[in-house]
């Protein structure tokens, strides 16, 4: 074993690891908003990408209007949340339990939002630049901000887990989604529950848009870039909102990292889609569906 093969191995591992954090951060953040709305409310929000778009524009515009970046991001999230709440009250609330109608309606919404953005703000925006330096090892380096995003993704998952399992809001939200009528009989204002859950999903999408503003070129098409990523992760993750998103993000992130290392980022992206297709074949209910089956079987064996 020659002396310089060891640093080489470390280099490879590190590079794949960095690649993984990028991918994981992107996948998880792109997905959570969609996953909360789909998992909790059974609505496939095809305007999810455009909520991200609103978050990104809110951030970009208020940044160029003179706000410091963190405040601009908060503004982006706030604007998205308000838009989400208004849309829930006026459009979405009529579509609960109507999967196809809700898809058509949210698809329509997404087109409207894209065109409005084009009309109001044109086809391009000024970049928001952020320099946080980079972490490097040998010839390879990774932007610090990209790593920070992966950390934020983990924090978001943890906070959501806490909200849904440890708070009264989370308990009522889960009860409402399981059986709205009984929840109402228990004194829960289910209408408000739907509104708040949808608002939360919109806020998370807005957060994603805000966070990726410095890392992406913000234009009216930005939403569709995230939408594919997020759908693939939801499909692979399955019905359980948080565990599904985490495991889906981890699995696809690993695949992306491996193949990006082998053949570049384009190959990585292709392999994500292929992995998703294979995943649908072997586990139509996603990873969490598979886990649930497995748990059931074990219980029956007992």
């Amino acid at each position: 074993m020659s002396t310089d093969t060891i640093p080489d191995a470390v280099y490879v591992v590190l590079r794949i690891f960095f690649e993984f954090t990028h991918s994981f951060g992107l996948l998880v953040l792109a997905t959570v908003g969609l996953a909360v709305i789909f998992g909790m409310m059974g609505i496939i929000n095809l305007a999810h990408g455009e909520f991200i778009l609103i978050g990104a524009y809110g951030t970009t515009l208020s940044f160029h209007a003179g706000l410091p970046l963190p405040l601009a991001m908060v503004t982006g999230v706030a604007v998205t949340t308000v838009v989400g709440l208004i849309l829930e009250r006026t459009v979405i609330r009529h579509l609960y339990d109507r999967l196809l109608d809700s898809m058509v309606a949210t698809f329509g919404l997404s087109l409207v939002i894209i065109q409005l953005t084009r009309i109001l703000f044109g086809n391009t925006t000024n970049n928001v630049s952020l320099s946080m330096g980079s972490i490097s090892y040998g010839p390879y380096s990774s932007g610090t901000y990209r790593i920070l995003l992966a950390v934020i993704a983990l924090v978001v998952l943890a906070v959501l887990y806490w909200v849904f399992t440890r708070t009264k809001f989370g308990l009522r939200a889960r009860a409402t989604m399981q059986d709205a009528e009984t929840a109402r009989a228990m004194g829960v204002n289910t209408d408000r529950m739907y509104m708040l859950t949808f608002g939360l999903g919109a806020a998370l999408a807005g957060l994603t848009g805000a966070l990726f503003t410095p890392a992406f070129t913000v234009d009216p098409e930005i939403g569709s870039e995230f939408l594919v990523e997020s759908f693939v992760t939801v499909v692979v993750g399955g019905p359980s909102v948080l565990i599904g998103t985490s495991l889906g993000g981890a699995l696809l992130g690993t695949i992306d990292a491996m193949f990006t290392w082998i053949g570049g980022s384009f190959l990585g992206e292709i392999m994500i889609l292929i992995a998703a297709i294979i995943a649908i074949r072997i586990m139509p209910e996603g990873i969490t569906g598979l886990l649930e089956d497995w748990r059931q079987k074990r219980r029956e064996d007992e």
Binding site: L171, R172, R174, A175, Q178, E181, T182, M186, V188
Partner: peptide, 14 residues
């Protein structure tokens, strides 16, 4: 009409 995917304790909490 218990909430099937909540635990016994969570159902009581409701």
């Amino acid at each position: 009409d218990v909430f099937p995917e909540l635990t016994v304790e969570e159902n009581l909490e409701m």
